[in-house]
Computed example of a mutant assay.
Amino acid sequence: MTSSELKTQTTENFETALTNTLNNEYTVEDLMRLLKPQDKKEEKKLYREARKLRQKNFPNGIYLYGFVYFSTNCRNNCRFCYYRKNNKHSERYRKTKKEITKISKKFIEEGVHLLDLTSGEDPYYHNEFNRFTDIINEIKKLNTPTMISPGVLTPKQIKKAREAGADWYALYQETHSKELYQKLRPNQPYKQRYNARKNAQKHGLLTEDGMLLGIGENLKNIAKTIKEMSKQQTSQVRCMKYVKQKGIPIPPQKPPTKYSTVTAVLRLTNPNKLIPASLDINGLKGIQKPLKAGANVVTSLVISDSGLKGVAQHEYGINTGERSPKNVIKYLKQNNYKINTKNNLKKYIKQNKNRNRNKER
Rank of each mutant, 00 (worst) to 15 (best):
N143K: 11
V265D: 05
M1P: 05
N195H: 14
A293S: 15
L301Q: 05
L274D: 00
K95R: 14
V328T: 11
R48M: 13
D134G: 11
G111V: 05
R33A: 07
I100C: 06
T207C: 10
D305H: 12
R33K: 14
V298E: 02
I226T: 06
P325R: 06
T2F: 08
I215Y: 00
L266H: 00
N282G: 14
Y337N: 09
T101M: 11
V328P: 05
K98F: 08
Q188M: 10
Q188A: 08
K241M: 12
Q232H: 01
K347P: 01
K85A: 02
I222H: 02
E179C: 08
R361Q: 04
Y172W: 12
R94I: 06
G210P: 01
K227V: 08
K202F: 08
V302Q: 06
N143E: 13
R33F: 08
M32F: 09
T257M: 11
E360S: 14
K97C: 08
E29S: 14
L205S: 07
N130R: 14
H314E: 15
K178A: 09
L332A: 06
I250L: 15
K95S: 13
K258Q: 08
L31Q: 05
I136N: 01
E109F: 02
S104K: 07
N199D: 09
Y63S: 03
R238Q: 11
S104H: 03
L268V: 05
I222K: 00
I303K: 01
S230Q: 01
S235K: 06
K183L: 14
I226N: 03
N343K: 07
K102E: 15
Q334S: 13
E174L: 00
K41L: 14
R357F: 10
K44W: 07
A312S: 12
N270Y: 00
G307L: 03
N352Q: 15
I100D: 07
I139A: 04
N218L: 10
G210M: 01
S71N: 12
P59D: 11
I108E: 12
D167T: 12
Y83V: 13
Q313L: 03
D122A: 01
Y63Q: 11
K56L: 15
R33D: 06
S3Y: 09
A295W: 10
K353R: 13
K198C: 01
G283N: 09
K191Q: 15
K97V: 10
K85T: 00
P255C: 08
N24I: 05
K97E: 15
R355F: 05
A312I: 09
L64W: 14
S306T: 07
Y259C: 02
D280L: 02
S4N: 04
I139P: 00
K159F: 11
E43T: 11
E109N: 10
R197T: 05
D30A: 08
Y65A: 10
T101I: 13
T207H: 02
A166G: 10
L212A: 03
K160L: 14
D116T: 03
M32D: 02
S71T: 08
G307Q: 07
Q232D: 06
T261A: 03
H314L: 07
F80A: 10
T101V: 13
G286M: 04
G216T: 03
L308R: 02
K198L: 14
L35R: 07
R92Y: 10
N352M: 13
K231W: 05
V237S: 01
S278F: 10
T269N: 06
E322F: 04
A264E: 04
I287N: 01
K333L: 14
Q9T: 04
N20V: 08
R357E: 12
L274P: 04
K326Q: 05
